[in-house]
Each structure stands twice: as structure tokens, then as C-alpha cells.
């Protein structure tokens, strides 16, 4: 419609039309646009139309638009980060501000950034080790939560009675902040490491458990009928109907939980001590190494993002949605 007005000015319709209408190029393929123009043109001017040329592959307007979009996706965040850094630098350079600016942070903590794997005994390790120790605790607590959560979720999802009985309890337990479990955990285990792992476990299990049980309860009646008529029982029912049907729900739970587990470990380690990024941040605070804190917090964010993306990626491989 919009192109009708442009048509008399453009001798080469195939190239000019998409250029004049950037957003059209995304939704419509070039070929129909040409035929469209051709018919309009003959109707409007009744002059013989020169044969429309197809744009060469390199000028494919769709591809140009896509590349431009891609460039924007990368450039815009960089611009935003530069601006934020600039404001931070300006703010930090003011008098009386304790927070070091980005340049000072890089300068002060360069040793920490450049040598993540140094190891000078149990109380002085590089950031890589600190993160690895934290990740190991998360991995243990989270895997335990995943196994127990999925298994319990299936049992509860399959039994309406169990769900009725236990759901209110879960709804209360899942709102308890992770750190509130720590004293109980310390009293039970008497040791820092298992206590931290237990906190991760108890934090991560609820979303997994609740989502799994909902996923099991929401297996469509159609699939249940197929399973009954075609006699899918036991392990065949489990692997061919139940698990794939509930998979999107299970993975939603797993993804929420990994984020929560990573949030909880930093806080828990601050209190339990030992090697780990949480205690490293706390220790830096006690020794007034502000730039070290900033670097650590940055790494905590990056690892958290990576964990979330990894689980999301696994979910996209397994979580086939129904058609």
C-alpha cells in the first residue's frame, strides 16, 4: 500500500522498494513485492514495464536488515556499558566517595584478575579457586535437589491425595528465605561445608518439586488415553508419556532453582567461611579491599548468567512442547 506512492519514481522496483520500506523487507519476501508493484504500475500508468530484476544475493534486503539487527544487538549493550562506566568513573572521582571507579578497580585488583589460579595455602587462593569451590557446593546441593525434587514431584503429581496433604506444607516451606535454614543446618550437621550444601538443597528443591508435580498432573487426558488403549505401562509409560509430557514443567523448575541456588550460596558462604566466593567477598570487606569486592561481584554475576543459560539450553534440547 505505502509502496504505491513510491512506484513512479523508481525505475528499478526490485531494489528501490525494500530500501524505501525497511520494515517491510523483514516480513515480505522480495519476489511477491515485485509482482505486486508490477500489477499496480501497469494499472496506474499503462506504460510497458521494464522486466523487474531480482536483487543479487549480497543485496538481499532481508539479509541486510538481519545483519543490521545483529549489529545493533551487540553494539547497543556496549554503548550502554560505556555510558554506565563513564558515570561510575565520574561519581567515584568526586571527593569523599569510597567506591573506587572502574579504572582504579582494574589497577588495584589487577593481580586478582590476571592470576585467577594462584594458591598460597588454604586462606589465600585465586578467584578461580574461590568460584570453583562455590560451584562445587552448588553442584552438590543442586543435583541432590534435582533428583529428590523430581522423584518426589512425580510421586506427589501421581497421587491426588498426597498433593492435597503436602501442597500447603510446601507452600509455606518454599517462602522461607535460604539463610533462615542455616542455623538449623549448622546445628544439625555441626560443620560448615555440609551446612552450606544443605542450604542450597533446601533452597533449590521447592521450585523443582512443585513444578514437577504440576507437570505430572497436567499430562493431557489425550496422552493418558493413548497410554491406556495401547497398553503403555511401567517404564514405557514413564519414558514415552510421563517424562516428555512433564519435561517443560520440570525444566522450568530446574531453571528457577539454579538461579536461587547461586543467590543462596554467596550469602551462606559469608556466614560459614572457608574457601568460596561468598566468604572471599566478606573477607575483602573486612580488609577494606573494595576493588576486590567489585571484581568478585562481577564474576558472581557472570557465573550466575552462565548457569542460567546452560540450564535453559539443556531445557530447549529436552523440553519438546506439544504441537
Amino acid at each position: 500500500m505505502i509502496m504505491n506512492t513510491e512506484k513512479p519514481r523508481t525505475p528499478d522496483a526490485g531494489q528501490a522498494a525494500p530500501k524505501g520500506n525497511g520494515h517491510h523487507a523483514l516480513t515480505e519476501r522480495p519476489k511477491p513485492m515485485i509482482t505486486n508493484l508490477k500489477t499496480v504500475k501497469t494499472k496506474a500508468t499503462s506504460k510497458p514495464m521494464p522486466p523487474a530484476k531480482l536483487p543479487a544475493p549480497s543485496e538481499d534486503p532481508e539479509r541486510v536488515a538481519r545483519n543490521r539487527e545483529l549489529a545493533r544487538t551487540f553494539i547497543m549493550p556496549v554503548v550502554a556499558i560505556l555510558f554506565a562506566g563513564l558515570f561510575w568513573e565520574i561519581y567515584s572521582s568526586r571527593e569523599g566517595v569510597v567506591l573506587p571507579g572502574p579504572l582504579k578497580t582494574l589497577h588495584d585488583s589487577w593481580n586478582l584478575i590476571a592470576h585467577p589460579w594462584f594458591d598460597n595455602g588454604p586462606n589465600d587462593k585465586g578467584l578461580g579457586w574461590q568460584l570453583l569451590y562455590s560451584l562445587r557446593r552448588v553442584a552438590m546441593g543442586y543435583s541432590l535437589a534435582a533428583v529428590v525434587g523430581v522423584v518426589l514431584g512425580i510421586v506427589i503429581g501421581k497421587s491426588a491425595m498426597a498433593f492435597k496433604a503436602l501442597d500447603p506444607i510446601f507452600q509455606v516451606l518454599r517462602t522461607i528465605p535460604p539463610l533462615a535454614w542455616l542455623p538449623i543446618s549448622l546445628a544439625t550437621f555441626n560443620q560448615a561445608n555440609p551446612s552450606a550444601i544443605f542450604v542450597i538443597f533446601i533452597t533449590a528443591i521447592w521450585p523443582i518439586l512443585i513444578n514437577t508435580s504440576v507437570g505430572i498432573m497436567r499430562i493431557p487426558a489425550d496422552y493418558e488415553n493413548v497410554a491406556k488403549v495401547y497398553q503403555l505401562r511401567g517404564s514405557r509409560y514413564f519414558f514415552k508419556v510421563m517424562l516428555p509430557s512433564a519435561a517443560p514443567y520440570i525444566f522450568t523448575g530446574l531453571r528457577i532453582s539454579i538461579g536461587m541456588a547461586w543467590l543462596a550460596i554467596v550469602a551462606a558462604e559469608m556466614l560459614t567461611g572457608g574457601v568460596g566466593i561468598g566468604f572471599f567477598i566478606w573477607d575483602s570487606w573486612n580488609s577494606s579491599r573494595m576493588s576486590d569486592i567489585i571484581v568478585s561481584v562481577f564474576y558472581v554475576g557472570m557465573i550466575g548468567l552462565a548457569l542460567d543459560r546452560i540450564v535453559a539450553k539443556i531445557a530447549s534440547l529436552f523440553g519438546t512442547k506439544g504441537d
Binding site: D222, Y223, N225, V226, K240, V241, P244, T320, K321, G322, D323
Partner: peptide
């Protein structure tokens, strides 16, 4: 079945 009810995975 009316809704074909194939297992989509």
C-alpha cells in the same frame, strides 16, 4: 481419536 492424539515427541 478425534484429536489424533499422537505423542508429539
Amino acid at each position: 481419536f478425534q484429536s489424533h492424539s499422537l505423542l508429539p515427541w
